[in-house]
């Protein structure tokens, strides 16, 4: 097993390699947020936040927080030079209109067709979908960044999502601490795996069928 604290860093660093210089990207709460700190040298991306900003910068030093410069998780953030403010209608125009190059989200379940469930567990947890349904429906690329199994050790990649779907739009890439899957029309294709693991171990941790890319390689750490 790969320890959880180590896993988060692995996932964030691998996702960070997916972007081109100048991409407009929305990062979800949790592991996706860590991606911003892992970008390779020479790659600058523009961070979008649902509550109405583009060009979001890091958390300011203590004592420099502005009460009205916040991200979609209510944390104090900052603007980078060239940043922009807009209302929620414009913000979701960027999202739904296909103007985000990518969105990175967590998941409760992803199935072998690439469908994502990440917004409720009936009877247990009903936080609401917030912006997730619009993000998955509208972004040019949807990248799932999640631990391979849940806290009980059960696979999060399943044959068919039992939880309510976020969108019928399939995700494009699934990145875990063990594996990277590309989603194709035929289903999941394993393209990279952790050198601390093996394809056999990944099969044991995955409750869905996946094909193996002939150019399969280990994840660069």
């Amino acid at each position: 097993m790969i320890a959880e604290d180590k896993a988060k860093g692995y996932i964030a660093r691998r996702v960070a390699k997916e972007f081109k210089d100048g991409d407009v990207v929305n990062l979800g709460i949790g592991i996706p947020t860590l991606v911003a700190n892992c970008l390779p040298p020479g790659i600058q991306i523009f961070l979008h936040s649902e509550n109405g900003l583009l060009g979001m910068g890091p958390i300011p030093p203590e004592g420099y927080e502005h009460p009205n410069i916040r991200n979609a998780g209510s944390s104090s953030v900052s603007f980078l030079p060239g940043g922009a403010i807009f209302d929620s209608a414009v913000s979701f125009g960027l999202i739904r209109g296909g103007h985000l190059d990518a969105t990175v989200l967590g998941a409760l379940e992803v199935d072998e067709k690439g469908h994502l469930a990440n917004w409720m567990v009936p009877g247990k947890m009903i936080p609401g979908m917030g912006g997730a349904m619009d993000l998955v429906t509208g972004a040019k690329r949807v990248i799932v960044a999640m631990t391979h199994v849940n806290k009980n050790g059960s696979p999060k990649i399943v044959k068919t999502c039992l939880l309510p779907l976020t969108s019928i739009r399939k995700v494009d890439l699934i990145v875990t601490e063990y594996a990277v899957f590309r989603v194709e029309d035929t289903g999941l294709v394993l393209i990279e795996y952790s050198e601390e693991s093996s394809v056999e171990e990944i099969k044991g941790l995955t409750a869905a069928h996946f094909d193996i890319d002939p150019r399969l390689k280990t994840i660069e750490r």
């Binding site: 649902e50 209302d87 929620s88 209608a89 913000s91 979701f92 999202i95 739904r96 009903i126 609401g128 979908m129 917030g130 912006g131 997730a132 349904m133 619009d134 509208g138």
Partner: peptide
């Protein structure tokens, strides 16, 4: 009543 955020914004608009 839970509504996707972009849909809620646009319905009000």
């Amino acid at each position: 009543e839970l509504i996707p955020q972009g849909t809620l914004a646009e319905r009000i608009r």
